[in-house]
């Protein structure tokens, strides 16, 4: 293996880690919703896309500074989460998980259409706000955007983890996740927890959207990123935050390697091949809780 270019491999892997952090962030948004409301939100990629496009409007359209646009995008993400929860998820309370899943498919369709209608179908790129100077980690070159994306995603995930563990609302959310009825009777406002989970997930998704858009540009198809995030959470386990993080890194690396060494068209193929293998070996993901069925 003397011909193997280890430096190049390291660079590809670092890029994969960067993408993995973004996947993990999106996966976190996904798990947040699933833990609190038991909804598998297939529209997470489209929520992410909305965040990116709102950011685009405020920077490229209105010429706001990037930090103001970012705040606007996060706020829009949170608002979207709240509206979606209140308007279409809550009326579905008590319906089968599959019906709610299909509602989120409908939601994804609506969001794609809205983006195309408002901003057009052509792909575009976000204004550069991160600078272009490359970063070197040792001898390995990494794109600056990817480094910033990784750092921001890691920081946001850390904040979420701490909040989840120590903040009152985070504890209430975990209680709701464990047993809705018991949480309700302990005086936890369960509907408020539902809204909160969707708002936070919306904010996280919008943030991830801005980062993803900055790295790879934006288009009405960028919701496909949500499919990769879906693989992340299935591989990690739908209700496991640690699973989302490790799954994110794993899928990020595998996509980077497959994309580089096999060709771009193999990216999704490898990701979903991995998904099928994990489903067959560990149906509830690497860290997910096994559901016990009763007669």
């Amino acid at each position: 293996m003397s011909g193997f270019d280890w430096l190049f491999f390291t660079e590809v892997s670092l890029a994969g880690l960067g993408a993995g952090a973004l996947l993990a962030l999106t996966g976190l948004a996904f798990v947040l919703i699933y833990k609190a409301t038991k909804v598998v939100n297939l529209a997470i990629g489209e929520m992410l896309m909305i965040g990116a496009y709102v950011f685009f409007s405020f920077t490229a359209g209105l010429g706001l500074p990037w930090w103001a646009a970012l705040i606007a995008a996060l706020a829009a993400g949170g608002l979207l989460g709240a509206v979606v929860e209140r308007a279409i998820i809550r009326p579905m309370l008590g319906e089968s998980a599959i019906s709610v899943f299909m509602v989120t498919i409908g939601l994804g369709s609506v969001l794609i259409g809205l983006v195309e209608l408002t901003w057009g179908a052509a792909p575009t790129s976000l204004p550069d706000f991160m600078g272009k100077a490359p970063v070197f980690i040792g001898p390995a070159y990494v794109s600056r955007k990817i480094v910033i994306g990784f750092a921001v995603a890691a920081a946001v995930i850390a904040v979420f983890l701490i909040a989840f563990r120590y903040w009152r609302g985070g504890v209430a959310l975990r209680a709701t996740a464990t047993d809705q009825g018991a949480a309700y009777s302990c005086g936890i406002n369960v509907p408020a927890i539902f809204s909160m989970a969707w708002v936070f997930a919306g904010v996280a998704a919008a943030g991830a959207g801005v980062l993803v858009g900055a790295v790879g540009g934006i288009s009405p198809n960028m919701g496909v990123f949500g499919l990769s995030a879906l693989v992340v959470v299935i591989v990690g386990g739908l209700d496991s935050i640690a699973g989302a993080l490790i799954g994110g890194i794993l899928v990020g690396l595998i996509e980077a390697w497959a994309g580089t060494y096999l060709g771009g068209e193999y990216k999704l193929l490898t990701t979903f091949g991995l998904l099928l293998i994990v489903l067959m070996i560990r149906p509830y993901g690497l860290f997910g809780t096994v559901e016990i069925e009763r007669l």
């Binding site: 409908g106 609506v110 794609i112 259409g113 983006v115």
Partner: peptide, 16 residues
């Protein structure tokens, strides 16, 4: 896009 939106709304509307 209008078609995409209408499909989505039909899915959501009927399910709800």
């Amino acid at each position: 896009p209008v078609r995409t939106i209408v499909f989505g709304i039909l899915i959501i509307g009927f399910l709800v």
